[in-house]
Design a protein around this nucleic acid. Structure first.
Lengths: 245, 245
DNA sequence: CGTCTGGTTGATACGACTCAAATTTGGTGG
DNA sequence: CCACCAAATTTGAGTCGTATCAACCAGACG
């Protein structure tokens, strides 16, 4: 099985067999975190860069009174904070949503990678810029879109991201996050998320049950979400080469 | 005059005279953009990395119907998208708020810098991570804080950022952004921002008039904003060395 | 088969939005 | 230096989207 990280970076550039080998080495699972447990907490000193090998996670921040904002979801193949060990302490936490297999990459291994594998380095740069871009889109989402658009947008984004690492099956995919998670990610309450999901279902935009999401008509969902995929920066060399061969 | 960029990076690390010289070269103003004009627009192909030398700017995204979200403010010394030329097209726009002096740095100059000046490279990494961290805090801000807390938080952040590049004067600073800008940055309407600013004034937390902001009691403002400065990652080597001599 | 988390529903409240107009400020040219 | 204009701020009245609180239900799991 091709590790999700390689699939992901392949979106950007065509990796050599040596590159793939290096990624396989790096993607070795070093930890399995049970569902709903934290991988690392705000205030701790980050030592490793993480790769999500299997399962879903999220990055979140909290306020003293318990209000919680999920600022990112992680799906397999996501790479976490290239160079984060430059910082003294974490300003947020990372938690597992499902049971999560993670590869911890030491600073040393990262340094080796960036000096010896320029193509991977470049691809990691790309992935870093895309992650930041997704954060910006989320700000637009939370700040400007209505509840309906907001949730539609989140679902469309996650579907596309999963598709890019081959974790979709036609028009559907596993979707393990709860309505409370969606609420914390969109700045809404769980009750309102529930009602809005019902609207989306009523309008035939989504089928969401038993932790499985189906999108019968992606184009319609995109329109409802005012979704412009440019921020995912998916059209790159890798894709073009794929198209040719 | 020490360029703001050097002041900013000095927060993180102690720069050598050669480092400073390199920064001075790079911080040469290559363009002056009139107030309220765009520096680069969504969809364009990014060729340069930018340094804000003088004046304020912002990064923003828009929806087809005109809704606009400011996702970041730039103040002097801010560095913009280390390595952005990796991407094919901009997913957002960058605009000038005041008249803005910018230094455009070519890919070539950046590559030179990163190969020859490891200390600067490290510091730019730090600045990159901090910028991303600020984005996360903004998501928490927009998604979870009340209007009152949200605006208080924004003002506190900008004040601290200006202070770190020595652009404050005691407890006050220039503050050229309009209430509409604040609205677009916080996900509120200009009318509501206006009323909330009046509340903040009434409570004695801020004095804001004639494009000048005064914070009589920063600690009180911080408390009102649920402001935790850890996300700015200001306590670093540079600061510690400063403390010793 | 009971427990528990996640999902659903209903009633009510309020924070923030909308629209519209008035007022103030700051910049520009006569 | 004043008149003028556009931009920014302020005010008021009415509305609406989303929150809150409180039950209740269902299906997953031990």
């Amino acid at each position: 099985m091709v590790p999700a990280l390689a699939l992901r970076l392949d979106t950007f550039t065509r990796l050599s067999p040596e590159d793939r080998a290096a990624l396989a080495t790096i993607s070795k699972v070093s930890r399995v975190i049970p569902a709903r447990r934290d991988l690392i907490r705000e205030g701790e000193n980050p030592q490793y860069v993480h790769v999500m090998v299997d399962g879903w996670g999220c990055r979140y921040k909290t306020l003293p009174d318990g209000r919680r904002q999920i600022v990112a979801f992680f799906v397999p193949g996501d790479f976490c904070d290239l160079n984060v060990y430059v910082l003294k302490e974490m300003d947020h936490s990372i938690g597992a949503i499902t049971r999560l297999s993670v590869a911890d990459i030491s600073r040393e291994d990262m340094d080796n990678l960036t000096t010896n594998r320029p193509r991977i380095t470049q691809a990691l740069w790309w992935e870093n810029l895309v992650t930041t871009s997704i954060q910006r889109e989320w700000m637009l989402n939370i700040g400007q879109r209505t509840a309906y658009e907001r949730i539609a947008h989140l679902l469309a984004e996650l579907f596309l991201r999963l598709r890019s690492v081959k974790l979709t099956n036609g028009d559907s995919c596993d979707f393990p996050i709860t309505q409370t998670d969606i609420a914390d990610a969109t700045g809404l309450t769980a009750v309102h998320v529930n009602r809005t999901l019902q609207e989306l279902r009523r309008d035939g935009l989504i089928i969401l049950e038993h932790k499985r999401l189906t999108i019968p008509d992606l184009q319609r969902l995109r329109e409802a979400a005012l979704f412009n995929p440019n921020y995912l920066h998916l059209t790159h060399e890798g894709q073009q080469l794929d198209a040719n061969g």
